[in-house]
Amino acid sequence: MQITPSMAARKRMRRENLIGYAYMMPAILFFLSFVIFPMGMALVTSFTDYSMDSFNFIGLSNYRRMLQDRVFGKAMGNTILIVLVSVPAVTLFSLWVASLVYKMNKHASSFFRVVFYMPIVTGTVAVTVVWKWMFSRYNGLLNYVLNSIGLINGNISWLGDEAYAIWCIILILFTTSIGQPIVLYISALANVDQSLVEASEVDGANNFQLFWKIKWPQIMNTTLYILVITTINSFQIFALIQLLTSGGPNNATNTIMYNIYYHAFKLNEYGYGNAMGIILAIVIGVFSMIQFKLARSDKE
């Protein structure tokens, strides 16, 4: 039987596909086992009263309980506040820093990249301990400086005061979140097509037009990635809360992730904790979709 070229091509393509899937198989298995399967389990158990000594189907009771749970409402409000403040702040600050740093010479650029990336490679606990000392009411740096310059009169318990605690958390989150976006933006700005930049300069574009019409569209994919990653990280804020405030004072810094941990691991209410996790996943999904939509329309 004579093999036609198209059949041979199809056969080759099928073989290449199979080889491709074989290479991906370890990652796919890992993803299915440690992401998809636990997500499915979380969804199923969110309809149960799963705890250390019980596992009964209770329908939507966990979700109804969430609606009446004042602490959950407070935690959701705090989480959304953190996201709404930290995501634009991190993105804009990173873009500003990157736009200054990428023009510098190699050594200066490397130095600033190391400086801004440092909090990421430093352990969260170590970063937290340093911030805790700076915020200390009794011998903290912040009180010392602000008292010295006359901005405050007397020491403040920054992490123990409802008015300040959440803003302190946002500040720490900000400093630990900007490293990666800055490095990504420096790289993206360096990759902007220079022929377009030069052409627009020849055409008489000013700096604002140059950025907005030429550079911004070309770094949009990076911006979208940064927005989505920062949004997810901000929604999942946990370690800072656990190490610094335990959600206090008076739930002023309680977040959904901390609330999930509290119910699942302190009270052994796994079903309720998973139901909160499902809601958090939906909220993150909605925020990410909105960001994709806005970025796409911006690109068009």
Partner: peptide, 17 residues
Amino acid sequence: DAGIAAGDELQLFANGT
């Protein structure tokens, strides 16, 4: 102080604050 727990308070006692 709602900003500290016993570990911090012990440190403040130990350093004379």
